[in-house]
Write a protein that binds this DNA or RNA. Structure first.
Lengths: 312, 312
DNA sequence: GTGAAAGCGCTAACAG
DNA sequence: CTGTTAGCGCTTTCAC
């Protein structure tokens, strides 16, 4: 018990006792077993962060921000990959819940009904991020992808573009964006946008291939919106190779504001969701819950910004 | 006990008993507490993977491969970021060791003496990856970055380049590569290469800035080797904007074979270490240890490949 | 300021 | 095939 206090509440011990414990810890290389501590205190000191994939750059800002905010309070972040297909979703959720994390931050897939029940039944504070879906399991921090798609469409239309195209990753969120984009185009009286879906993970090669495919359409587009900046970069490369002027002949717009977006040539117009802000808010919500406070505002819309640069 | 068996060794139960347990599990939403199980069995079912950063794309292949290989054996991967500075290294190591992972895969920083002792004293199987350093803590899977640098230098020299430059991230491994590169250049009787160090994280903007800086040198280089493909991509962009022909006037070479390397224009010559292979071997070594086998070959050099494309 | 007792929820070991 | 006993290493609680 005295050792436990020496490590967690050193101010409660006599200096001499503390010194003796420290010496023994150093001499023996003692590292407390956090499983045992967690079992007894029902506080694991871990927050699980579940993302669809680590392969892209979409979520690194959020993960970094969560790691920083939670780390300051002594919580460790455990990153897990859900994958975009939900094959192992429930299995992974069970493994995560089984470790009794003090909080779960989850990004991506719409959970199966079974998965939602697991999460709910666990009693663990949950923050869903990125999407403003209806009916969050618990808390939510994100932006409306329908709004984003509509605004992206209006942005391009407002620059005089009328033959819009969309290059989209093969996942559920991208599909909802595509639908909202198409719907807004209809409202604006534009031609129905061509939607080109590329396989995950979305990358430079996918963007190049997508533009190739779009150029053999009857009406070649005068603007393309991509569901990630990596795709947009591929589109830029393909356009340059083919001598297509951007933005003159073709406007190109991305999503994510990845770190290269501002320094490509032409610089990339893109839609940005502030991942660091999402992470910071998610962390704050979790910490409030862990401190026993009631979180009144369970849904936070962090909004988004269209960053206008040269490519559109 | 019967419930425990139903979940872990269902073949040992009578079908009827198994059925009753399954029904109860489903009805109550029971998820076993893995902290308790781990405490008793001294098997946590977790392997910790520690990387300098998730922000780049260097390690995603390895992480994916580890997740797959270990996941098939029921082990969960916990990803942690050490950071390139070793400020919190020991602290993070304590937090990780405290969870008693069944294995640790560690990439990056040379550990402090204290850190090495913690790892050694923990008795946990350790695989260091990426670097072939002298004196591994336990097991090691990687490539010699000195060899890589020397070969990169020879490659460029062999293509008739004589004014070499190097764009390097600000970390210890990159520094060792730079030194080996410079030394080989001396052996080959070339001018001493200019070394330009850019801040972490290495990215497109850093590459552009680096080439700008290199061009104001007295002798402008005719070849640049970059410590990551993101930097190399920035160099390509800057060269194009300035009308510098690649590879005619300037050869550009990267490191990592990131997913965009093969489809940039010009396609990027780069040095590849097979991260998936590193991960697969690391997983195999850990699993052997966990199965009680003695690992005889503690050091594995997976080598590297110079992938010759258009840029050099 | 320090320590004793009890128990967190599992599973190893053994018994039947 | 099923069940009993004991204990993993901590921290909560209470006592002095």
């Amino acid at each position: 018990m005295t050792v436990s206090r020496a490590l967690k509440q050193p101010e409660k011990l006599a200096p001499r006792t503390l010194e003796r414990v420290r010496e023994a810890v150093a001499r023996t290389g003692y590292v407390p077993n956090l499983m045992a501590g967690g079992l007894r205190s029902s506080r694991s000191g871990v927050v699980a962060v579940l993302v669809p994939t680590l392969a892209g750059l979409h979520f690194t800002g959020m993960i970094q921000s969560l790691t920083d905010s939670l780390g300051r309070r002594g919580l460790q972040v455990l990153v897990g990959q859900l994958g975009y297909r939900d094959t192992h979703e429930d299995e992974l959720l069970r493994a995560v819940i089984g470790r009794r994390p003090d909080g779960i931050v989850i990004t991506g897939t719409v959970h199966s009904q079974q998965g939602r029940e697991l999460l709910l039944g666990s009693g663990i504070p949950i923050v869903e991020t990125w999407d403003c879906t209806d009916g969050p399991v618990d808390m939510l921090v994100g932006a409306s992808h329908e709004d984003i798609a509509a605004q992206a469409c209006e942005f391009l239309a407002g620059r005089g573009r009328g033959r819009l195209a969309l290059v989209s990753g093969d996942n559920e969120r991208a599909a909802r964006r595509a639908q909202a984009f198409v719907e807004r185009a209809a409202v604006l009286g534009l031609e129905p946008p061509v939607v080109h879906v590329v396989p995950e993970p979305t990358n430079h090669a996918g963007g190049r291939a997508a533009l190739q495919a779009l150029l053999v359409q009857r009406h070649t587009p005068d603007a393309v919106w991509c569901s990630s900046d990596s795709l947009a970069m591929g589109v830029l490369t393909e356009a340059r190779v083919r001598g297509i002027n951007v933005p003159g002949t073709l406007a190109v717009m991305g999503s994510g504001d990845f770190d290269f977006a501002a320094t490509l040539d032409p610089t990339l117009t893109t839609v940005r969701i502030d991942g660091a802000q999402v992470g910071a808010i998610a962390a704050r919500l979790l910490l409030q819950r862990l401190d026993g406070q009631t979180v009144t505002q369970r849904v936070t819309d962090v909004g988004f910004t269209i960053i206008e640069r040269e490519s559109a």
